[in-house]
């Protein structure tokens, strides 16, 4: 009977210049805490064992960085996608990020772990002003140790200065044909991206750089670079993404 008890939550945060947070409102499963940050920069942590989408749940997270403001967002723990009893629709987790002129957002959550039998569709939409800066990291772990994953689809859509900068969707697990073959994941169980957008990259674009056999740093069409990585597990994935971050000078 739990199929009817679906969670729907929408958390919002707005960062203003000087480290102020005029809006900081968690809801239900999504609790937001202000945490200690650097001067002039607001830092928010998505907390709690409650950040667990069950199949059928719907979560939304909206962050706005006003012009000239700086915000860092992390999460306290990995997000587990769990099966929901009786639910037929996948859980949805929609994140909307907006960064104004001269603003900066560091969006660095912990991984999402897709548990066997779960179904989650994550969509992250980022809208950047022409002079906005962004560091965004996504990590997906396909199943707990030794477990087959659930069904996990993630889409990352980034617009910069009014034009499409990056649009990537990845579907893994049951219902995603060929996901574990040699073209897509090839038997790996962790996959992630690190996106850096910075007007400085327009002057001096990043050079393509191999970060081992299963990760690469590439320049996008626009002032941006992307690290794409697959790895056997979350720890190895994080290592590859951190190497990319170091190469891009955003550690």
């Amino acid at each position: 009977m739990n199929g009817g008890a679906r969670v729907s939550a929408h958390a919002r945060v707005t960062a203003a210049p000087g480290g102020a947070l005029p809006v900081l409102r968690g809801e239900g499963a999504l609790a937001l805490r202000r945490t200690r940050g650097e001067p002039g920069r607001a830092q928010v942590t998505v907390v709690g064992a409650m950040s667990v989408p069950l199949t059928g749940d719907s979560l939304r997270l909206t962050a706005v960085v006003e012009p000239g403001a700086a915000l860092s967002v992390t999460s306290a723990a990995a997000t587990l996608a769990l099966p929901g009893q009786g639910a037929r629709e996948p859980a949805t987790y929609d994140t909307e990020l907006t960064v104004g002129e001269g603003g900066e957002l560091r969006w660095l959550p912990e991984p999402v772990i897709s548990v066997r039998g779960s179904a989650l569709r994550m969509t992250t939409r980022v809208t950047l002003a022409a002079t906005a800066r962004l560091v965004l990291r996504e990590q997906q772990v396909l199943g707990r140790a030794g477990e087959e994953p659930g069904s996990l689809t993630t889409r990352l859509v980034v617009a910069h200065g009014g034009r499409a900068l990056l649009d990537q969707e990845l579907a893994c697990g049951p219902g995603a044909p060929g996901w574990d073959g040699g073209a897509v994941i090839g038997g790996h169980r962790a996959v992630g991206q690190l996106l850096v957008v910075d007007p400085a990259l327009a002057e001096k674009p990043a050079e393509p750089l191999a970060l081992g056999a299963t990760a690469v740093l590439t320049p996008l069409v626009g002032p941006a670079a992307l690290v794409t990585a697959v790895a056997p597990d979350a720890l190895a994935l994080r290592g590859l993404l951190d190497r990319g971050a170091a190469a891009l000078g955003v550690v």
Partner: peptide, 22 residues
Amino acid sequence: GTDALPAASAPLLDIAAEAHAA
């Protein structure tokens, strides 16, 4: 508009393409 077009991606194809080109 083009937002409605699929964006299905394959990480290993992207990673391997750069290695191959080099």
